[in-house]
Design a protein around this nucleic acid. Structure first.
Lengths: 205, 205
DNA sequence: TAACATTCATACTGGTCGGTATGTATGGAA
DNA sequence: TTCCATACATACCGACCAGTATGAATGTTA
């Protein structure tokens, strides 16, 4: 397009469009034709940058979703004073940032996980790497909180992180299934209960 | 097949095969050809019993999945003495019954919800009706527990049921994403924490 | 047994898809 | 200026898919 040539830009455009297409309809139902249509890129260009559809999907996970997760969760949690406060704040920030997309289409990472994990091991491993990153960021914050006396020490940080991430995906999934933002709010109440229960001095441990 | 004729049976076979196919690859990727192949039913028979693919999918939700949910969750919870004990017992029973299928392929209802809710309103409503049934069974048990003094009364039963179901789906989803049964166990630990916290006399309310 | 609706069976259609073959324009290096 | 890899563009292919047209059995009813 434009008669101009710019390989890096076209690759970026393809990745962004593929990300949105996959987020909208899933990987298997994603149409290369629609991606090309929306980007103005031609099939020749696409197959120059990616050997096949699967490689494009892999790149979306490895680059686009990974960058979002890193910037949206890992980095912010590093600079949080209190881990529980930090998780709650990041949670609401991410929910606000994604807006209606989160309720309508769900979490891009979890969508892919649920669709592709049983079907393609390459996807599964890449997706699991991102979940590992995510849980790692939360667990690190929780461990720091334990050292600083903010988080109860009778819990294993990694186990808590696993449950927190799963619970987030559960809540987002419920809201998506209902196509109703209020479900996200109501469901998050239970998660907040759990998070508050992780603070130090909450008894019954 | 068999030269014999039996409309009810062929319909049942079709529904069962469709259920399995959808559970395996999702509705959109489900192939009528594969369903016919595995049942031995022909295309003419299929389109005699169902007007189109979508109607077959709807019937799977309305009949197959609904029956499973009713028999597996609603009925058992009605005869539970303690709701928290009951939920925990049903949880493990269901997990045991589905075996590796649960970890490999995930929850049939939630799979469909995540795939189809944003795409087709007919699916969404039917799926949401089943979630309503499920949450209703749990909420009813919790309310009875509150009346009988077994469950703390500073919680709204419906909100708790929403979070419990979402949390279950989150845990199952995590295990499916990891394709690892141990993830299901570890993740359920957090849910058990939450459930135990619903019992009466647990402080910090 | 004759008429008729139900229950299937077979062959075919149009459309979409991922992928490929082939060609062309660009830009940098020698 | 020549050469050549890079970066595209266009046309086409075979596979699969949901859905349809048509007809043949089968069971039911009169």
């Amino acid at each position: 397009m434009y008669g101009k040539r710019n390989p890096d830009e076209t690759r970026r455009h393809l990745l962004e469009a593929a990300y949105e297409e996959i987020h909208r309809v899933g990987f298997q139902a994603a149409s290369l034709g629609r991606i090309l249509e929306r980007t103005g890129v031609t099939k020749g260009a696409l197959y120059h940058h990616f050997p096949n559809k699967k490689a494009l999907g892999y790149a979306v996970v490895d680059e686009v979703i990974r960058a979002q997760l890193h910037a949206g969760w890992v980095v912010p949690l590093r600079s949080a004073d209190d881990p529980v406060d930090g998780i709650i704040r990041v949670l609401s920030e991410r929910a606000a940032e994604m807006g209606d997309h989160l309720v309508q289409l769900g979490c891009p990472l979890n969508n892919l996980a649920q669709e592709m994990a049983p079907v393609d091991e390459g996807f599964r491993r890449r997706i699991e790497a991102l979940f590992h990153l995510w849980r790692g960021g939360i667990a690190e914050a929780l461990r720091r909180g334990q050292r600083e006396g903010r988080v109860r020490e009778d819990r294993v940080a990694e186990d808590c992180a696993l449950y927190i991430v799963s619970s987030i995906e559960g809540c987002v999934g419920a809201a998506k299934s209902a196509q109703d933002r209020r479900v996200l709010i109501a469901c998050s109440g239970g998660l907040l209960d759990y998070l508050e229960g992780l603070r130090r001095g909450e008894g019954h441990g």
